[in-house]
Deep mutational scan, measured.
Amino acid sequence: MQRVNMIMAESPGLITICLLGYLLSAECTVFLDHENANKILNRPKRYNSGKLEEFVQGNLERECMEEKCSFEEAREVFENTERTTEFWKQYVDGDQCESNPCLNGGSCKDDINSYECWCPFGFEGKNCELDVTCNIKNGRCEQFCKNSADNKVVCSCTEGYRLAENQKSCEPAVPFPCGRVSVSQTSKLTRAETVFPDVDYVNSTEAETILDNITQSTQSFNDFTRVVGGEDAKPGQFPWQVVLNGKVDAFCGGSIVNEKWIVTAAHCVETGVKITVVAGEHNIEETEHTEQKRNVIRIIPHHNYNAAINKYNHDIALLELDEPLVLNSYVTPICIADKEYTNIFLKFGSGYVSGWGRVFHKGRSALVLQYLRVPLVDRATCLRSTKFTIYNNMFCAGFHEGGRDSCQGDSGGPHVTEVEGTSFLTGIISWGEECAMKGKYGIYTKVSRYVNWIKEKTKLT
């Protein structure tokens, strides 16, 4: 034993070699072989497995989906700052455009905790909710729209109204504003409101030439003092309507412009014939205590009207009353817009006519005020429907199939267009061939041609 100890002390290297040989010859039971080890760690190889990531292109799944990435790591994937920024906006807080917040056709661009709407022409605001041009839906104005110097929408209202708090709607500024039905039992019968379409306001006024200088022999019209197929109006439903009495009662109609003036057809009036105007009328054979009678003290036909040349060209006249009318729910003026808007309103496509005229061709006159909704007829169809001249200051309205029309005794009465609950004068009943005849239409004086003249002559002093 002493000898062994001496050998170990003198030859430590020998001992180490012996131990190493023993270990190498022993069977290893701690580690699995290569094949079995792979069965336990069965993990798919990654895209760049075996390579240094710093030297390969980034992978979106590896960089940002398996674990949260930084902007720089995302930049490695896209290799483009702009594309990385677009991805980053949604990656950080989701897609803010998912709810489609942009209105009126706006395009949404996502941002971090926010979004941006790219608005089409005519709109602005956070969600493109603000109209900035009158060309689109009248700028959301209830009545009139004008573009300011910086191309912003400025709404306005006709006389007797003021802008509401929203700067879009119009509200009454006087007790009985024009064009409004205020009798409670008839307010439910107000005709369907007309909503502004998209309009090209630059070209809204037709490029028409008034044929002022045409000389033409007097034409022989049949029954051209021209509501057939209409309905009984309720008291106060058309408070701007008046009836004219002269040699015979209810020979023509008219509309209240203001307390002192009536507008009617020029062919209705004769110099030297006494005319009485009755406002607030409903049943011409009954006294309903809503009527107001006034005498006409002055007749002003349009300066281009000449019955000797043509009885229905420039067929418009103004009547001055001896005493002002007292405005109330049964006696209310009709609204008159400017030339541009009167023309736009007419193009809405349908209007209402009213009167006490004959209820059928050569038949009896109506006792109760009649009204009828009539569609506008395109000019080409209008011209083809008659052998008589249709001037540019006239328009056609009615039904091709016949059966409904204005008729004798309705002449001078109103053709009105309702705009968001307020009625505007767009025409004056003038003439036609018979009444409600198939293929024939009622012919009306186009008020847009005469609004400046009306307003100039009827100013209240």
Score class of each variant (00 low, 15 high):
Y341I: 06
I454H: 01
Y22N: 07
L321S: 01
W356D: 02
G229E: 15
N452L: 05
Y312S: 04
R358S: 12
I309C: 06
A192T: 14
T276Q: 09
T458R: 02
R83T: 12
P12E: 12
E54W: 00
G355H: 13
E159L: 08
D200A: 10
L60W: 04
K137D: 12
D338Y: 04
F87V: 03
E288L: 06
D322W: 02
E259S: 08
V277M: 04
C128R: 03
R140C: 07
R379H: 12
N306G: 04
D95V: 08
T85A: 12
G58C: 04
F388C: 06
E66T: 05
F360C: 09
S156A: 11
A207C: 06
S350M: 09
P197C: 05
R373E: 06
Q185V: 13
G21C: 07
T85D: 11
V278E: 03
V326H: 13
R298K: 12
Y330T: 03
D249M: 09
V269A: 10
G349W: 05
C396P: 01
K455F: 06
V30E: 08
C117E: 02
D131F: 12
V374P: 05
C18I: 13
N59V: 03
C252Q: 01
I284K: 08
K274G: 14
R83I: 15
C28S: 12
A37V: 11
M394R: 03
T461H: 15
E82S: 08
T186D: 15
A266E: 01
S220D: 15
L425E: 01
L346W: 08
S329I: 05
M394K: 04
N258T: 06
H361R: 11
F55M: 14
A192M: 12
N258W: 00
F87S: 02
I334D: 00
L383I: 11
E35R: 10
P333I: 00
D93Y: 10
G412T: 11
K293V: 14
M394V: 10
D322Q: 06
R373G: 05
S99R: 11
V248H: 13
F31R: 10
G246A: 09
D200N: 09
C170P: 01
S365N: 15
L20K: 02
D198Q: 13
V154W: 11
W118T: 15
S329G: 14
R140T: 06
C117D: 02
S99G: 12
F221M: 10
T389I: 12
C252F: 01
T287Y: 11
R62A: 04
P301C: 07
T271H: 14
K247Q: 14
N38G: 14
N166R: 02
Q167E: 08
I297P: 01
W453T: 00
T133C: 05
I300A: 04
N36P: 14
Q216N: 09
E259M: 05
A436I: 14
E288Q: 07
P333T: 03
R3T: 09
P172R: 06
Q241A: 15
C18D: 02
S49G: 07
K347E: 08
T29H: 13
Y371F: 12
T186M: 14
F348S: 15
G105T: 04
Q185F: 14
F78P: 02
Q241P: 01
F176C: 04
G246D: 07
E82D: 15
R46F: 01
F221C: 08
D223K: 08
G253L: 10
E165S: 13
G280L: 02
Q167K: 05
Y450H: 03
L319K: 00
A436F: 07
R379I: 14
T194L: 07
S217I: 11
N343M: 05
N80G: 08
H282F: 09
N59A: 05
R404E: 05
V447G: 01
R404Q: 07
E208H: 13
E433R: 07
C268R: 00
Q143E: 02
G439R: 09
N138G: 06
I443L: 14
V326P: 02
E124N: 10
